[in-house]
């Protein structure tokens, strides 16, 4: 992940809130992914509102010590096309 780049929820993805977080479904590639915490759900939903990943982390009050693990999780979501790079 590039913390200076902007990301967004993929336009073909729908999120369904669940007690543990949310389910994300990609209508194109039919992948179903679990977003396992409410923080992750809020972060993913907010990506499009920020010009960079770093700003999104800041707005979601995610401490720097946790950035690496969130970036790994987001990279998995990008690989499944749940999120994608946003055009600037």
């Amino acid at each position: 992940m590039d913390s200076h780049a902007a990301y967004r929820l993929h336009p073909q993805v729908a999120l369904r809130p669940e007690p543990f977080g949310a389910l994300a479904y990609h209508y194109g590639n039919r992948k179903l992914v679990f977003l396992k915490t409410p923080t992750m759900v809020a972060l993913v939903r907010s990506l499009a509102d920020h010009g960079s990943l770093a700003e999104a982390f800041k707005a979601a009050a995610i401490p720097p010590s946790k950035h690496a693990s969130y970036e790994r999780a987001l990279a998995d979501l990008e690989a499944s096309e749940i999120i994608c790079a946003a055009a600037r």
Partner: peptide, 17 residues
């Protein structure tokens, strides 16, 4: 927080399958 599988056993707001 319990692992995901344990949470799934407790049921979801709607089915997946």
């Amino acid at each position: 927080m319990p692992p995901l599988v344990e949470q799934l056993k407790g049921g979801l707001d709607a089915p997946i399958c």
